[in-house]
Amino acid sequence: MTATQVRAPDGLGAGESTPARRRRAKPPRSRRTWREQLTGWGFVLPASVIVVGLSVFPAGWAFVISRQKADLISPAENVGWDNYRLILDDPNALEAAKHTLLFTALFVPTSIVAGILLAVALNRPLRFQWFYRTCIFVPFVASAAATGILANFVFDPTYGIADNLLRVLGLPQQGFLEDPNQAMAVLVLICLWGEVGFNVVIYLAALQSIPNDVVEAAVVDGAGPISVFRYVTMPELAPVTVFTAIWQTITALQLFDLVYTTTKGQPGDATVTIVYYLYRQAFELFHAGYGSALAYCVFAVTMVFTGLLVWYARRSGTEAF
């Protein structure tokens, strides 16, 4: 294709002169030597090897295992799609999936709303602003294992600080992580504490990239703070929100480490999430084939969720990716 004439950009009115002819310098095909190609491959090869070796290849093998009756120790036996069929008849897998969806439904919207509110608050000129920002971000840097162990102490129904606080306030004592009706909600709370810092940082960056003149123009036109937030800030944050929603959904669907370090699925398996369930199957009960099949289902669901969000974002004109 040879570009002989550059099309006038949209918006240029009739009568304006067409831009001068530009000849785009394009290297002749012959100059792209094998040497250049090799150099190019040389640059991408190390990363490719890592990606293929540590992600694509293991994923492929996990698929092979998912069609086997395997414990990873004794010789495996091919069983076709039996492991996948078993999932459909496994009430515990269904329960675990429900717990994961409940967690996702509670966690993702809350983390986004909390992230926006905190970011807006921290975007104002405040004394000790750096201190508040650090406070919010530190839990995100702490490992989930540390967060979980800490939470165990805070929410211990007998000796924990949370119940002590309730006692001081004259409120009834709670079971928290040991009450089947509260455990999931408490997990959401712990996870929010750890993850909200990430959203805050993302939204702070987005808020600071909103041009001041747009805001000022809105104010000049008579918009109050709420209207500015509703009609200027919110639309500007939409692309970022698509990103945080996808990110936090993946975090929520793959929730494992917090469960592992706090409840181990207890009480009464009320906090067994799907990834914790597949870990238990593959590594505690020696059902590696079944565990792999579950992992592939989680992968498929995550893909669908992400695809739907991207599709929705594109349809509504929000370019996030």
């Binding site: 295992i65 480490d257 992992a295």
Partner: peptide, 11 residues
């Protein structure tokens, strides 16, 4: 992610 890790070990 634990999932990736689990997949890797399995694979």
């Amino acid at each position: 992610s634990r999932l990736t890790a689990a997949l890797a070990v399995l694979a």
